[in-house]
Design a protein around this nucleic acid. Structure first.
Lengths: 247, 247
DNA sequence: TGGGCACCTTGATCCAGATCAAGAAAGCTG
DNA sequence: CAGCTTTCTTGATCTGGATCAAGGTGCCCA
């Protein structure tokens, strides 16, 4: 009732896919105006999710997909014996929730790393709209393919790469993703802890910390807490794959 | 022309989804007779693919999906510096080719590990049939979800598990998959080399060899070249997750 | 404005699994 | 079936990154 006017305005603005700045990265990509409006009809835009709160948890029943609108999320598996594996970080415009596609129950948990918002796509309605808007179906397929290819790259990273290559890959990937979102590719804030990075990359926190120190010594980066400045992106990229071994 | 009658018969039999023994695992699962017939219309059943030949290669343009009918395949990524990462093994009834969903070009290569056959689902026709057969759309979604969840489990395996846990997981997973296909869950032939297993599990061949030796000593397995007899499946399963560490 | 906590860094030591180095066994080919 | 090649095994040694240990640093909240 007595909420300050500013905050009221923000909450009552009708945010549509048409006006959303993420349109070029997100599901509307390549759709025409009428098609975007059809998509817009079924999108549910929820309340912000606080840092540390879950979008969903492993084994929750759920038939929706989600697109990150603002903020960032991590997805992770938990094992019986209590440890966790981070399987992905999600930035605005990225798709989350495919893990419930098999059975209608989530096989991983997804948690906000900062206060974040998502667009929800209720499964049944989405299928229905996909039938009448083939372009949407294609774009969804493309996002699914992206997810699968990204997972494959992670398998390569975890199966074959050294600690140095892993962190370099990670930073280069973040750089590219920030740049696609019109942020600087060479200066950004990490939204996740060293702990999360290490977990995701299959390395101990201490190793992450040491690598940041070394990259800084080598004049590749300037690191200040979670703020990263990439001082030599080409050289960082060159660290992503080993300087050729046998063959 | 003068091919022996036996082989002629095999090649000319009209193999339909309706009659296929894999129906309960594969795309027809849960569809009614009429729906299966509609699916059947678009399925292209190709010539056998010899051991070592590719179903497709990385960066091939391709809009089809494939279902393994007989035999087995491996999918792998190749890096610039010439090494490879196996990202999956595929048994009859399993879906292959999602990696081209993003851009219409494959991001990994898929090779037959023995003489094998597939059912091809041409992309455009598949989309079209999915529109009129919702059950098919659901079943396809389920297979996509399965793929994603399986990749996540592999990330956990590569990120957190010990060599012993990795090989145990691998064998238990094979056991389950063979059993779903009405083969013995405790006695089967590996269709892949130790090299491939090691590569897939992020371990050296020597480690695989030593682990097989140790599992055999411990009376968990009887190993004869590629023939595996699981002598104590419950105990093998118990090795899949660590006996609890910190917390 | 200081006390507690979560997060991060740095150093010392250790070890699982890689790598190197020989063979042995099984398949393939002429 | 002799000679190759490929695949697998087994032993010896080495090492990248884990683990253990001990602070440091910034931040939240009373």
């Amino acid at each position: 009732m007595s909420a300050p006017r500013q905050s009221l305005d923000i909450q009552t603005i009708k945010i549509s896919c048409e006006l959303c700045s993420l349109a070029e990265l997100c599901l509307p990509r390549g759709l025409n105006e009428a098609e975007v409006r059809e998509l817009d009809e079924i999108v549910k835009r929820g309340r912000p999710i606080q840092r540390g709160k879950h979008l969903y948890r492993m084994s929750d029943q759920d038939h929706s997909l989600y697109l990150v609108r603002t903020g960032s999320f991590k997805s992770y598996l938990s094992t019986d014996d209590g440890d966790e594996q981070v399987v992905g970080f999600h930035l605005p415009g990225e798709l989350v929730g495919l893990d419930a596609f098999e059975t209608g129950r989530h096989t991983c948990s997804t948690m906000a790393m900062e206060t974040s918002t998502v667009c929800e796509l209720p499964g049944e309605k989405l299928n229905h709209v996909c039938r009448s808007v083939p372009g949407l179906h294609n774009q969804l397929q493309s996002l699914i393919g992206k997810e699968i290819s990204a997972d494959h790259s992670m398998l390569l990273l975890l199966g074959k790469k050294s600690a140095e290559e892993r962190l370099a890959s990670f930073l280069v990937s973040l750089s590219r993703r920030f740049s696609e979102r019109s942020f600087s590719p060479v200066e950004f804030n990490l939204c996740m802890s060293r702990q999360d990075i290490g977990n995701y990359l299959g390395l101990a926190v201490e190793t992450i910390s040491r690598l940041f120190a070394r990259f800084q010594e080598d004049n590749l980066l300037a690191v200040d807490r979670r703020l990263i400045k990439i001082k030599d992106l080409p050289r960082l990229k060159s660290l992503v794959s080993r300087p050729t071994k046998k063959d």
